[in-house]
């Protein structure tokens, strides 16, 4: 069964796999998480604002994105971003955007919809009493949000936000459909070039498994420590 396996191929391709592939994966994950949380929090505030011209578009956007598969969203932005670039810069033809930027825009805006729902739940879980206490001291909406509500909401949602990041980390593998070289893409390239599908895909699976498992265990320990402090 495992007679024809060449484990050496894995060792030889390690530099390419990690310096090119994994670096892309990690960069994309971190940037999309940061951007996604920022935009997601803004969307959450818009949805909770009670101001219809803000709440409606934000809600529509979030619901639209959450009803679409990520693969479809990747295709959408892959074709759309050059045209947006054209419209934004007023040039004559669609701007040639690199696959990296297309992927970054896609994942940031996609995850923003999911981070929005997490932050919305977090903000709503802060008791009304806290809001009233802040207001009673004369704080404006903006001040009470920045000083009182959002800091507490973030702290409460840290485990969920981190778990979403781990999911993002796994989802980046889907850039495969636009032929971008992330970690899986790199493994795939070698697999196809050298005909070593079994070795490369098994190795990729193991690497993703180890990283995700370690990360989610760390999040769980963090959750325990936060729970004790409460």
């Amino acid at each position: 069964m495992f007679a024809n396996i060449d484990w050496n191929i894995i060792v030889r391709s390690l530099p390419y796999l990690f310096f090119d592939g994994m670096r892309f994966t990690v960069t994309l994950t971190l940037l999309a998480t940061a951007g996604g949380i920022v935009i997601g929090t803004l969307l959450a505030l818009m949805r909770l604002s009670g101001i219809v011209p803000l709440a409606l578009p934000a809600g529509a956007y979030v619901n639209l994105i959450r009803s679409m598969p990520l693969v479809l969203v990747i295709f959408w932005f892959f074709f759309l971003v050059p045209y947006i670039g054209q419209w934004a810069t007023g040039s004559e033809r669609p701007i040639q955007v690199g696959a990296f930027w297309s992927a970054l825009v896609t994942f940031t805006l996609f995850e923003a919809a999911y981070f929005c729902e997490i932050m919305r739940a977090g903000i709503q879980s802060i008791s009304r009493g806290q809001v009233q206490a802040a207001q009673a001291l004369g704080m404006t909406y903006k001040t009470s949000m920045i000083e009182i509500i959002l800091p507490q909401a973030f702290r409460n949602m840290v485990p969920v936000l981190l778990t979403q990041t781990i999911i993002l980390f796994q989802d980046t593998s889907l850039v495969y459909v636009i032929s971008v070289t992330d970690f899986l893409g790199a493994a795939s390239k070698i697999a196809q070039r050298d005909g070593r599908l079994v070795e490369m895909y098994l190795f990729a699976a193991v690497v993703y498994f180890v990283i995700s498992l370690a990360a989610s265990h760390w999040v769980r320990r963090l959750q325990h420590r936060i729970a004790i402090i409460r």
Binding site: S127, Q130, Q132, A133, E147, P151, Q152
Partner: peptide, 9 residues
């Protein structure tokens, strides 16, 4: 307030 509502953080 009845439930104090100090800012816990």
């Amino acid at each position: 307030f009845q439930h104090f509502e100090l800012f816990p953080h």
